[in-house]
Design a protein around this nucleic acid. Structure first.
Lengths: 70, 70
DNA sequence: GTGTGACTATAAGTCCGTG
DNA sequence: GCACGGACTTATAGTCACA
C-alpha cells in the first residue's frame, strides 16, 4: 500500500469527520486550499513539516495519518 | 515534539538496531549516503516518498517512524 | 564511517483563475 | 465546495569533494 494513498485517505477521513471543508481546513492548517485539494487527489508527495501542520490542524497524533484504515 | 526530530531519531535507532552503517543503509534504501546523514541530523524536511523508501529499507511499518520513543 | 558546504535539477508549495 | 490548470517561488532531491 502506498503511503501517499493512505495519507490522502486519512486526511479526507479526519477532515470530514470534524466537518471542515478543504478551504476551511487549509486555512486552519496554514496551507493553501489548492494544496489540500492536490494532496487528497494524491497529486503531491508532501514534506514532513506540512504533515505535522496537517496533523495539528486535524487535532490528531501525526502517526495516525500513516495507519492504513481498511 | 517535532516530527522531524522523532523521525530522525527513529531512523538512527532502527538503522543501528539492524546493524547497518549509514553507507550500507543508504545503498539498501536506494538513497545517497550523505542524504541519510542529512536526514539523521535533521537538516532536511523529507517528502513522503522517501519516508516510505526508508521505512521499507528498515523493514518496519511506516507509521513506526513517527511514534515518539522516549 | 560520518559531517558539512556547495551545487544543479526537480518537486513542493503558493496564488491566480475557471468550470 | 471541489477539481483542475498555469505560472510562479522556495525547498527538497540527489550528488560531490573535502574535512
Amino acid at each position: 500500500m502506498d503511503i501517499i494513498k493512505v495519507f490522502a485517505n486519512n486526511v479526507k477521513k479526519y477532515r470530514t469527520e470534524i466537518g471542515l471543508s478543504q478551504e476551511a481546513f487549509a486555512e486552519k492548517a496554514g496551507l493553501h486550499r489548492t494544496y489540500i485539494s492536490a494532496i487528497e487527489r494524491e497529486k503531491r508527495s508532501i514534506a514532513l513539516d506540512n504533515v505535522q501542520k496537517i496533523a495539528d490542524a486535524l487535532e490528531i497524533e501525526t502517526y495516525l495519518l500513516f495507519v492504513e484504515v481498511k
